[in-house]
Design a protein around this nucleic acid. Sequence first.
DNA 1: CTGTTAGCGCTTTCAA
DNA 2: TTGAAAGCGCTAACAG
Lengths: 345, 345
Amino acid sequence: MPKKVTAAEVAEVAGVSRTTVSFVLNNVPGMRISEETRTRVIEAAHKLGYHPDATARRMVSGKTSVIGFVLRQSPDQVFADHFLPQVLSGLSQYASSEGYYTLFAPIPLDDNSDGYTRLVRERHVDGIVLSGPRSDDEELPKIHAEGAHIVLVGQLPSLDIPSIDVDNVGGAKQAIQHLLSLGHRRIAMITNAPLAYTASADRRAGYRQALEEAGLAYDANLVRMGDFTPQSGYRAMSELLALRPLPEAVFVASDTVALGAMQAIRQTDLRIPQDLALIGFDDIPLDEYVDPPLTTIHLPAFGLGWGAAEMLIRLISGEEIRTRQVYLDTELVVRDSCGANQNKS
Amino acid sequence: MPKKVTAAEVAEVAGVSRTTVSFVLNNVPGMRISEETRTRVIEAAHKLGYHPDATARRMVSGKTSVIGFVLRQSPDQVFADHFLPQVLSGLSQYASSEGYYTLFAPIPLDDNSDGYTRLVRERHVDGIVLSGPRSDDEELPKIHAEGAHIVLVGQLPSLDIPSIDVDNVGGAKQAIQHLLSLGHRRIAMITNAPLAYTASADRRAGYRQALEEAGLAYDANLVRMGDFTPQSGYRAMSELLALRPLPEAVFVASDTVALGAMQAIRQTDLRIPQDLALIGFDDIPLDEYVDPPLTTIHLPAFGLGWGAAEMLIRLISGEEIRTRQVYLDTELVVRDSCGANQNKS
DNA sequence: CTGTTAGCGCTTTCAA
DNA sequence: TTGAAAGCGCTAACAG
């Protein structure tokens, strides 16, 4: 056990009072201390291997300099979360640039309430970023009312909590516009999830808007439901493949679901993109390595984490937040599954 | 701002002393307190919305109940880390079961030293799990000598720090044995990385051992170097495909690298697994969705996190650690790329 | 059974 | 310029 060196010991060795030690080491402004005392203190601290105790410091400062990242997902979901590393990177990178540490707290949904609320109520953290908020979360409104600093990654229209999310409508429009620009007109869609999820509903809305802006009618028969998994994509695509005439292109609102769709297509004579163009959504790491590499809409996961941390720390610092609901832009990533690269190569 | 309710206020409302409040709320053993006082205190606490301040508690208990998870990787690497969600899940799940929180601290390698050492020296955490330790890390031996509680995920033979790692030799042997059991004899290998990495050297050692145990000679010409990326796998496989006679099977010591190898094979007339069997290593999520689904060796990422947390908390609690260097078993995951499922379907 | 009291290590007025 | 002293909110000996 390393016996902790206290400021008092440093003071003694340097022959000054603890106060002086504190002033010197923290470089307190207004205080003008003789150069000699200063070096004496610094040397003593160095020699003794002194490091101020974070807990004691928190005690008096009243702030922890830690933000919590709360994940409202089941362990299985955390497992399969392609974006966790990126969101977490963005979050902790920004936090660290502002002198904050990041507490990682995955709290399963069934672990009702008190799991993550303790984080803020017992002041383990100065505030939290809550990913995947649930509208049936009864504790959230409470701690919000208690004045806890919270930023949501996702949506929860019922509550007036600052949030950050992806512009799903805009992203879907980008996808459709790309398809349109390549001359496709009969464009089908497979959703990423049931429409009860706002992300899913928004992506379909973007699909529809882009179509209508191009003077094309929305045909419900061309829209099939995906359900997070490749299996659901396989099924949905099989249905689409039974249609006559065939769609010319398919917008799959999730790359994971698109993987299954590709498998269904592979079992036919159809070739991607020559006979059927395919565009995904999310830009998961493997897109580059499937055959053909999947054109998709990039989800700014790093930005989500970064932005959430930025908003939260602003909140904690008591600064004003300009926009309480932030939407991040997506980006079209052109690879080979839509045929846009045909002439280039 | 929620004005914090202190134990003193609870005491006042309940008409007792702070001590009693503390005893009741913490359910201190030996203390026998009248049922009536007890309920009075509990009710007062509840009514006031009292939550003990974690910082104050740490101050006196001397422990933070937080463990740090330090990632010695560049942001790019964190990004591409397929296993982070799993390791982190395992770690935080075990930690939480023992009443610990997890502090996530990615510290780039170039951010020399003092980055993560502060975590332990300033007592932000009770100990750390260090993932991806570097032998050129000069601070690590120091804080270890200072008595910090540390568990390594990976290897660092030069230091006597408890560590946990995957049994890479055993895993590679499993892969080769599977190939052998399917009748393959001329088995090539593509490494996952340069041999300077212990994981890479160990996997090649396992390949060699399995071969020799089966009475087969090790042929250096059948071994090519991968370098983390699919591109490197593509290149290495291209070299292998130029060999005559062709290998019957290839063990690629990384699924990511195997992705590139598959692409190289796809450009020939060879079919997997009929003409060439392929087995990977790692079991990344996308293995199921490539064509054909990749047979591989499962890396117990969740177990790595779980086990590291277990060792660390044992260390913190002052318990004895039976094995200081733990090796986790891998597992063969049979899919379609080796032909083992031929007869089944 | 319950209250008094003394800190944990640090920051920070207020005096000297 | 520097030092003395007052807490931050809580726990835990030690009395009563």
